[in-house]
Simulated scan of single mutants.
Amino acid sequence: MTKVFITGGAGFVGSRVAKRFADQGDEVYIFDTFKQYLIPDPTVQPPNLLLRLKDFIDKIELIQGDTLNKDHLRRTLNRIKPDIIIHMAALPLAFMAIEHTEDAFQSILGSTVNFLEIVRDFEHPCRLVYTSSSMVYGNFVTDPVTEDSPKDPKEIYGSFKLSGEIVCRGYMKCYDMDVSIVRPSAVYGPYDANQRVLQKFISRALNGEPLKVDGDGSMRLDFTYVDDAAQAIFLAATHPKARGEVFNITRGKAQSLKEAIEIIQEEIPGVKAEFGPVPAYMPKRGTLDVTKARTLLGYDPEYDLKKGLKLYIEHLRHNPI
C-alpha cells in the first residue's frame, strides 16, 4: 500500500487527486490549512470546502497544517514516511499574487523549499510532485507550446512558479532527489470555489446575470476539466518514467472565451455577455502540447470543453460550488 501525502488536498484539484489514490486503496494523508482565497463578502454564505471530500472522507486522514510551519511539517512527514508527496498548496490565482506578493512568495517558494529540505534527509525513497503553472511561459511564442518552449512570465504568479521549478531541479541534481513537475492550465469543474472564469460565467448565467468577459471573447485558453488534470497529476506521481521530468497537463486544445460562452448559451438560453478590457497582467496564451505526457505516462484526457461544461453546468444547478 502506497502512502501519499497531498498538500492542498482539500482544494479544488487536490481533492480529485486524493480521491484517485483513495479509490485504489492507498493510504492518503491530506495536509491543508483549509484557507479559502476569496474576496470577503458579508452577503455571501461561504461554501463548505469539505463537500469536496464527502464521498471518501472515511478513506483518508485529514491534517490541518501550514506548509510554512517547517517543524510541524517535518514531524508530520517523519511520522507518516510517505512514498509520494504531491505539493499543491499555494495561493492559487494569478491576480491575487499581484495584490498579495509576500503571501504568494511564501506559499509558492517558501513552502517548496521546506519540502525539499525535509525530503533530502529522508532515509526512504519518496517522489515529490511540484505543481507549477502554464503561466511560466508568459506570452506564448508558439502555438502549441512544448515543455521546452521559452519561459518568460509576465506577472508575479508565473514568476514564482517558475522559480519553484528551478529550485526543484537544483535540489534534484544536487541531492539525487526524485522530483517531477506538472504545468496545468485553466482548470475548471465541480467544487471550484476560487472564482475562476468558467465558474463565474456559469454562476452568473444560472442567476440570469450577464457574463463579464475580459476582452472581445477571442482570448484562447487550454481549458482543462478537473478530472483530466487529476489523472495527469496521479500519473506524474506514480509512473517510473516521470522522475526528473516536466509535463504540460492540459486538454491539449485551446478554445476561445467566445466558444465557451456559446456552449453555455446552448445549455442556458438567453444568456448575455458584456465585454471589457483585458487585464494587463494576462499573457497571450493558447494550446499546450501534451504529447510528452501522452507518450511517457499514458495520459489520455477525456473531456473536451463541450462535455466538461455540460457536466459542470448540471453540477452547479444542484450544488453551491
Rank of each mutant, 00 (worst) to 15 (best):
D152Q: 15
H315Y: 15
Q24G: 05
I6Q: 07
D152Y: 15
L50F: 14
C168A: 10
I30M: 05
Q36D: 12
S111L: 08
G110N: 11
V187A: 01
F201L: 01
N114W: 08
I166D: 13
F275S: 00
S218Q: 11
Q106T: 07
S163W: 03
T2H: 09
Y157R: 03
F31N: 05
E61W: 10
I249R: 02
C174Y: 10
F34K: 09
P42R: 03
H100Q: 14
L93M: 13
F275E: 04
E155F: 07
K59F: 04
I63L: 11
R317T: 00
K35T: 13
D148T: 15
S159E: 10
L211C: 00
M88T: 12
H124A: 07
R127W: 04
P283M: 07
T146N: 08
E123D: 13
I264S: 03
I80C: 12
L296W: 02
D103K: 09
I156L: 11
H124F: 14
I108T: 13
K3I: 10
D300H: 09
D55L: 02
A22L: 07
V129P: 03
Y225V: 00
A230V: 12
E209Q: 12
F95S: 12
P47D: 06
R16W: 14
F105E: 15
T33P: 05
D26A: 13
T67Q: 08
L305E: 05
V167Y: 11
K151C: 15
E245T: 05
G270L: 02
H315A: 14
I118D: 08
G25Q: 08
T76A: 06
G217R: 00
D66S: 08
V278E: 11
F160W: 02
K19D: 12
I321V: 15
L305W: 05
D178W: 04
A205E: 06
Q255I: 05
P277R: 12
D192R: 04
K284G: 12
R120C: 04
Y303S: 00
E102Q: 13
D222V: 05
I249N: 02
S203Y: 08
T131F: 00
R16M: 13
F95N: 11
T250V: 04
R52I: 03
P82D: 03
N78Y: 14
M96G: 05
A229E: 07
C168P: 04
T2N: 11
